[in-house]
Write a protein that binds this DNA or RNA. Structure first.
Lengths: 191, 191
DNA sequence: TAAAAATTACACAGATTAGTATACTTGGCG
DNA sequence: CGCCAAGTATACTAATCTGTGTAATTTTTA
């Protein structure tokens, strides 16, 4: 447990700093200092800054999606309502020291076609979309795949606009749009 | 004309490099070299790297929105169709060496609440939204403001997903969603 | 308890960063 | 012609960056 402690301190410190300031803007000295750990220890756990970034993104991805799903499923049992509850959870996310999507930021700073960082971000987005799709399928809505893709567009758009306007209103607007799309899609079986 | 030439060379070089690599990742030496200009000349025209970034963003913003509006209005005369043609223009943008939204990238790298860079990005997004709103109003659709905001969400979402998946398909999916929203909004007068 | 691993402290290398100093050259304009 | 601004060339500062070398020290584990 103590073995992973320093490593986790580093990842958490890195996540906070990267989220607030971006990746290039934060140096390894700053990270190790914030983690109350020597730079040498940082390089003991991660062979480079990029490795630390990758570990931090993977850590965040896993935890975030887990929390997200848990929150959605805590809102309601009804499958269709869950699809809409997604936007309530997004809104809560925006209201809680929101600094934009870490993955979008990472892709912007490491745009190289085959950068491992890009790959992690792509995988995260793909898993998010798969989750939305699974919700749409459980709701037994027509054309669940298409609907899920459109809902993802609304979510991602809301993320960008929340960052631009420093406001969570975009989540509500996105939810209203999603309601229309869902109604238009039509319920095959609803009880 | 020769007076503005070097300055424009610098802005264009900066735009290309920033778009492709991000802001922190590109140094002033690289920019001046690409612009075939001395670093001293760069600092003759811009008092700092941040000033150059601001000038580049403003230049790009103006030209981009101009081109965008021109492209939309060249597609069709019908107001409702123009609202949808927006997505066709977006798709063409994605197909043309798309590297993500420069403003979203800038805000990610300069997240400071009151950074001038942030302000320029906010203003750009606000003007874009105003344009969409004006299209919705000319289409005489019910609740044009709300509809415009939702369409903007779809556009911004498509931008993010086009960057993630390196594909322009998101534009088409967004267009389909917009069609539904527009139909749901209902035409008050349509001819 | 004794070996092994993790961590510290600290200095340092080498590259790169933004920005400046200085002296020189060029080109246009009155 | 003569001035003045724009640009060049080059070297420089001072800070910062990622990453390493080394030796001492603590912690874990066997």
């Amino acid at each position: 447990m103590a073995r992973t402690s320093k490593r986790e301190q580093l990842i958490q410190a890195a996540l906070e700093l990267f989220s607030k300031n971006g990746f290039h803007a934060v140096g390894v000295d700053t990270i190790s200092e914030k983690a109350c750990v020597t730079k040498r220890t940082l390089y003991h756990h991660f062979k480079s800054k990029e490795e630390l970034i990758l570990a931090a993104l993977r850590y965040y991805d896993e935890r975030f999606r887990n929390d997200f799903m848990r929150a959605v499923e805590g809102k309601t049992e009804n499958p269709v309502d869950r699809l809409l509850a997604v936007f309530d959870v997004v809104e809560e996310w925006f209201d809680d020291e929101f600094t934009g999507c870490l993955f979008v930021g990472a892709m912007g700073e490491y745009p190289d076609e085959d950068s491992p960082i890009r790959r992690v971000c792509q995988e995260s987005k793909a898993l998010n979309q798969a989750y939305i799709k699974s919700l749409a399928e459980k709701a037994e809505l027509a054309d669940a795949g298409r609907l899920a893709e459109q809902i993802v567009l609304l979510i991602e758009g809301a993320i960008t606009m929340a960052q631009v306007n420093k406001s969570s209103l975009s989540a509500l607007q996105a939810k209203k749009a999603a309601e229309i799309l869902i109604k238009s899609s039509g319920t095959l079986v609803r009880q």
